[in-house]
Structures are given as structure tokens and as C-alpha cells.
Design a protein around this nucleic acid. Structure first.
Length: 575
RNA sequence: GCCCCAGUAGCUCAGUGGAUAGAGCACCGGCCUCCGGAGCCGGGAGCGCAGGUUCGAGUCCUGCCUGGGGCGCCA
């Protein structure tokens, strides 16, 4: 389905091009109309013409009568557009009769293959709050991209390889007597990791054994690999539990850990060498991509192979690019990784481009995000200063949601546990998704669980309330074959908001910004509330109006549930 | 020292070079005997500082201030 904005943009672009080839109409949402067109002002300036006159002539040469009921030149040369009722109604009918609410358009997967790299926890460590944003944002982006018609491949680049495993395995050998190894749980592993670290830092003999163990691991020693697999398997169970609790789509099939690329690294170095890009510096094999300097203004290396022969994460990331382009057929690679990694990815992309591994028609994007902060504006920690475990955070979210529901005295027929889970988890995810992702955001239980303001619970409640109208009216849903009517400005405002859903989704995808979809949903919910305040639905003055308003309610509920769904948040029918 | 990101109302946040900078919370004042108070309507209060580009700057450029991050063998 073509949304209003894209239809208008296309028509206006033609009209503007007739005046000056390729001129941008600068179509924008407006407080003065449904849309405003600002392009005439800049164009008039560059052509040395009067902006109002130019705007008038563009309006005269552009037929929008099937879409707009009013096209007016205003102020110094703005063009204000008001959508026609017949257009709004036809858009609404198309949406209502489409199970996908008119979002997307193309065939499933028709817009190309996209690899999305997100979450990326580490083996032998519990997932913590630091993994929250990548998991939640990455998952929302996957859902959004899929809906827009992309063929999405999720990849979980877990840290399952490298030097830490030497000390972990060696410590395992030290403490394991018989069956104790099989009893190992992840919770133990977190403490286990710290113990291993301590031994490594304080015991030179242990450290040496660890280093030898790394070599054994990399050379494929059977006993070592068995111990390694034990650590990996236990960690995977833990990741599964967290993803399930969090409602993240990642599965074990999506795991492509660092170890996967191990066998590709020797040839990667050879290829870089053959290309003449490799420079040995202090015993390390490096590439110096142009434009990057260190603190002394000297060229900054991307270290491919360390002086001890081991590989760093740059090698793995480069191998991953080759794998994703050559073997997975990606036309776009999206990395949902924190902002501090910006320089690392910029360097990796630069090297991959220079090596010809990342062709010009393949896009690589670092979707960066800021930190989660506590109320003290410092990194979010527990009261005692410890890293917050993700599983504990999610448990607390659900507990707090139970209290919130109980305090409100809501009767929940489907079970408070189920609703509390949707509310609590939804609140955490929505709080994360609704702020502009490059900024740090403050983690605040009270605010995210509030039923007022731009929160998950607010939108879930809005949805549940609308559903309750139908229950009360004794009907399953609205009759989607009914032709809606507009008799009130509030009905019109709601309709305008509803038909903007597709554009909101497109915008969120184009900028990798779930927060834009959040803003849209919040606006829709508040617009609905104004409508609902002034326009009785079940008590509408006549059958035609009642049916029409039921349709508005139905569509609003569907858009809210669908929009939340695209963010990875569930919307209960009752709460 | 160099580079990157951020600085918007008392607080938390929106804001694709366009008209009078918007929400929510908190505060103040009205309204609703009605579909679950997500109430509804209205009010006060703000772009870190200084220049510049532009018909027009929160948005672009330069400098400065504040905070966070990065800057060779952890990943």
C-alpha cells in the first residue's frame, strides 16, 4: 500500500523537477496542516524568483485533487496540504482489509538479504545489563526489516574463543574432580570466571599453563575441545533462558561465534599479505587504513595477528565480513554494537573495502547506541556496585509489574503472572527502545512502569482498553467492510494518525531508529484518547456512526498491537 | 594532546535547514451524572557559551565550557 507521504512526495517531485531538475520538494509533517512543502523557498532563492509566486505556480502545475482537499500557499512560500476525506477513507479501508495493515509492500524478502549482528554475549559469563540494548534494539530492527520486506539473517556473534579460554579450561582442570564438571551451572561460571582470572593474574605457573592451553585449543586438542564444549553448552542454555524471558527471537541456530571463523584466519592473513596491505610492526601483523591516527598523530594499526601468533577480534570481524558477503550473500550488514566500538568498525570496514571484500554495492552499518545509566547518571549498577545480571533485572521487572497491577486493583482473568510478564518485560524493552538510540538513557523503574507518559504499560493499557470496548459491546471486532465516515475533527485526526502507520515503520527502518515508531505509537494513543473522550462509540448517535467508530477503535487496537509487536513487545487483551 | 558522541522546561525525553521549539512527570486553574481515569481542556517555565554561513539555525561551520567514550598486541 502506498502511503500518503510517498504518493505526495512522488507527485511533488515531478512538479518541482519541471521547474528545476531534481529539486527536492522538502515534504514535512506540519503543525499547520497534514503536511507542508518547504522546497519552494530555497528553490526561489536559487532561481532569483519570488517564493510565493513560485509556490503558486508549482501548485497550479501539480494535480493533487485525488489526495488533498486543500492545497494552499501560506506565509513566505510554504505549501500546506490537507488530505481529502475520500483519500483518508480509501486508505483506511485498504489498511483494515490487509492483515499487514498496509505496511511493507514488496514480497517477503524481496528487498535483499540483510545480516543483523546483535546481542553477542560471552561464553562462561552471565548476560548482564550491558547486553540489554544490543539484544532489544537488534531484535526490534530484525522484526522491522523483515516486515519491510528484507530477507533477514540474525547472527549472534558470541565470544566463544580466544585467550580467556586458556585460563578457564585450566581452572576447570584444577577444580574438577570427577562429576563436578557436569554439575557446573552458569551461575557458578560467573564466579568461576573471576577465580580463573585471579589465578591468571597472581600465579605465573598457572598463567603459563593457560597460555599453553590456548595453543592446545587452537590446534584442536581433543580433551581441550571437550572441556571447551562443556563451557559453551552450559552458556548456551543460559542465553536461551534469557532470550526466552526477554522475548528475543535469537535461537541456537543463529549463533555464529568467534570460533566459527577460526579456520579462516590463516588464509585471511595470507590474502592481506598477497594484497600488499600487511605490515609487520613490533612483531604484530597490522593493516594501516588511511585516515586513522593514534595519540601521537601516527598511523593507527588494525592488528590482525598479535606478536604471539594469536588473532585479535579484528581478524574475526574481517573474516565475518567475508563470510557474510561471500557465503551468506548479504547486501547489507548491520552491527548493533555500542558506540565505543565506532572506530573499530570504521577501521574494519575501511580495510574490508580496500581489500575488495566489501564491494560498493554491499552496505555495512554500525548501529551504535549509548549506555544504560543509573539515577546517579553513572553506569547502571546494583546498590553494592556490581554489574546487574540480566536475568535478575527481568525478574525484578516482572515482580514490579505484579505490584503495579495489584495496586491498581485491575482484575485479570487470564492470570496475573502472564500479564505481569508482558507488562514488566515490555516496560524494560520500551524504555530502551523509546529513547534516541545514540544517547545514554537513564534506567528508572518508576518511570518505565508508569501507566502515564510514553511507556510500554501506557500503550499496552490503551490497547487493552480498546479491546474492552468490543467485549462490552458483545462483538468480536469491527465490520471491516463498513465504510467509515468523518463527522468530527477528532475522528479525522485519528484517521490521519492511523494511515501514517506505514510511513512511521519505514522511517524507523530507514534510520535504524525504533524510537521513531515508539513516538508514533504514543502519538496515536493520545490522539485516540481525545477521539474517545469526545466521540461515544457504543453510544454513538446512530448505527452508521457506531459502525464507523467501531472500525476506528478496531484499527487503532490493531496498529498498537502490531506496532508493539514490531518492537518485540506483547499486548495483552486484558489487564 | 588528537578524534568521536552528548549538552533543549525543575526532572525524563522529542525535535529529517523552515512558520509561535513539542511531549510526559511535577506544579497551577477549569471540565466530565457517559463506553475500565491511558481522563479531557488550558497555564507558567527552555535550545551550555561566543562567533559565523543562510531569506531562515536547536539543527550546518569555527572556537570555547561541561560530561561520557576512544586512541597497538583484551574482545
Amino acid at each position: 500500500m502506498r502511503d500518503a507521504k510517498s504518493i505526495l512526495y512522488e507527485r511533488l517531485s515531478v512538479a518541482f523537477s519541471e521547474v528545476s531538475l531534481g529539486a527536492d520538494p522538502v515534504l514535512r509533517p506540519s503543525a499547520h496542516a497534514d503536511f507542508q512543502v518547504n522546497g519552494a523557498l530555497a528553490l526561489a532563492k536559487s532561481l532569483g524568483r519570488n517564493p510565493r509566486e513560485l509556490a503558486e505556480s508549482i501548485v497550479a502545475g501539480c494535480d493533487l485533487t485525488d489526495v488533498c482537499e486543500a492545497v494552499e500557499v501560506s506565509g513566505p512560500g510554504f505549501i500546506n496540504l490537507r488530505l481529502s476525506e475520500s483519500f483518508l477513507v480509501s486508505q483506511a479501508l485498504q489498511m483494515a482489509s490487509d492483515s499487514g495493515l498496509g505496511v511493507g509492500g514488496g514480497q517477503e524478502g524481496s528487498r535483499g538479504r540483510v545480516v543483523v549482528d546483535y546481542s553477542a554475549p560471552n561464553v562462561a559469563k552471565e548476560m548482564h545489563v550491558g547486553h540489554l540494548r544490543s539484544s532489544v534494539i537488534g531484535d526490534a530492527l530484525c522484526r522491522l526489516l523483515e516486515r519491510e520486506g528484507y530477507d533477514v539473517i540474525r547472527e549472534n556473534h558470541v565470544g566463544d574463543w580466544g585467550t580467556p579460554f586458556g585460563m578457564l579450561i585450566e581452572h576447570l582442570v584444577d577444580v574438577a574432580d570427577g562429576g563436578a564438571v557436569e554439575e557446573l551451572t552458569v551461575s557458578d561460571l560467573d564466579a568461576f570466571y573471576r577465580e580463573a582470572r585471579t589465578c591468571f593474574d597472581s600465579d605465573e605457573e598457572f598463567a603459563e599453563r593457560s597460555r599453553r592451553r590456548v595453543v592446545k585449543l587452537q590446534s584442536g586438542d581433543r580433551e581441550t575441545l571437550d572441556l571447551w564444549r562443556l563451557l559453551v553448552a552450559e552458556s548456551m542454555r543460559h542465553f536461551e533462558e534469557v532470550y526466552s524471558r526477554l522475548g528475543v527471537l535469537l535461537t541456537p541456530e543463529d549463533v555464529v561465534g568467534e570460533s566459527y571463523y577460526n579456520s579462516m584466519l590463516d588464509s585471511l592473513v595470507e590474502d592481506l599479505d598477497d594484497l600488499g596491505m600487511l605490515v609487520e610492526d613490533d612483531g604484530a601483523k597490522c593493516v594501516f587504513p588511511p585516515g586513522f591516527t593514534n595519540r601521537d598523530g601516527e598511523p593507527l594499526p588494525l592488528i590482525i595477528q598479535k606478536s604471539d601468533g594469536g588473532y585479535g577480534y579484528a581478524a574475526t570481524d574481517l573474516a565475518a565480513i567475508r563470510d557474510r558477503v561471500d557465503d551468506k550473500g548479504a547486501k547489507r550488514i548491520v552491527y548493533v554494537v555500542g558506540a565505543p566500538q565506532a572506530q573499530h568498525f570504521a577501521m574494519c570496514f575501511a580495510v574490508a573495502r580496500a581489500a575488495g571484500w566489501l564491494p560498493d554495492d554491499v552496505e555495512a552499518v554500525h548501529v551504535e547506541f549509548g549506555n544504560v545509566l543509573g539515577s546517579d547518571r553513572k553506569m547502571f549498577k546494583t546498590r553494592s556496585g556490581e554489574t546487574v545480571k540480566l536475568i535478575d533485572l527481568l525478574d525484578e521487572a516482572v515482580e514490579r509489574a505484579v505490584s503495579a497491577i495489584s495496586e491498581r486493583g485491575d482484575s485479570v482473568s487470564s492470570g496475573i503472572e502472564s500479564v505481569a510478564r508482558m507488562l514488566g518485560i515490555g516496560a524494560v524493552k520500551y524504555a530502551d527502545l523509546s529513547t534516541e538510540r545514540t544517547r545514554d538513557y537513564m534506567f528508572d523503574w518508576e518511570r518505565m512502569l508508569a501507566f502515564e507518559g510514553n511507556t510500554g504499560p501506557y500503550l499496552q493499557y490503551a490497547h487493552a482498553r480498546i479491546r474492552s470496548i468490543f467485549r462490552k459491546g458483545g462483538v468480536e471486532g469491527a465490520d471491516v467492510t463498513i465504510v467509515p465516515v468523518i463527522r468530527d475533527e477528532r475522528e479525522r485526526a485519528l484517521l490521519v494518525a492511523l494511515v501514517g502507520f506505514g510511513a512511521a515503520v519505514s522511517e524507523a527502518v530507514a534510520t535504524y531508529s525504533p524510537s521513531k515508531l515508539c513516538a508514533y505509537l504514543f502519538d496515536l494513543a493520545t490522539t485516540f484518547t481525545s477521539f474517545y473522550e469526545g466521540c461515544p462509540v457504543l453510544n454513538a448517535p446512530d448505527a452508521e456512526s457506531r459502525g464507523s467508530r467501531m472500525l476506528y477503535c478496531e484499527m487503532t487496537a490493531r496498529v498498537l498491537a502490531d506496532g508493539l509487536g514490531l518492537l518485540g513487545i506483547e499486548a495483552p487483551e486484558q489487564m
